[in-house]
Design a binder for these strands. Sequence first.
DNA 1: ATTATGACCGAAG
DNA 2: GCTTCGGCCATAA
Length: 99
Amino acid sequence: MGLNTEVWNLIKKIPRGKVSTYGTIARALGKPLAARAVGNALNKNKDFAKIPCYRVVRSDGRVGGYALGERKKIEKLRGEKIKIVKGKVENLKKCLYKF
DNA sequence: ATTATGACCGAAG
DNA sequence: GCTTCGGCCATAA
């Protein structure tokens, strides 16, 4: 397959109301230094219905990019009761999903 | 084979 | 808090 499918299949497991980070995903795939590549992989996803790419944020809590725009990403997260203040997730530790 | 680009990260100022 | 910078990986040209 490829990195893309690996990433997509993995993040499908992130439940509603939880998030993960690019770096965490990279580590979970055994490529600890590939955080950037993970972002690229998510950017190529088109199936927004099945793959919750909006649940992946930056390591410092900032929401990060989204193919449909940062605005939409924040809306989606808020829709799952995740607090966003000044473009950052509050209590990132608390919302983090453990793989 | 080389270069550029991007939904990143950590350290440093 | 903030910004800048070098480093990293994968993909495309």
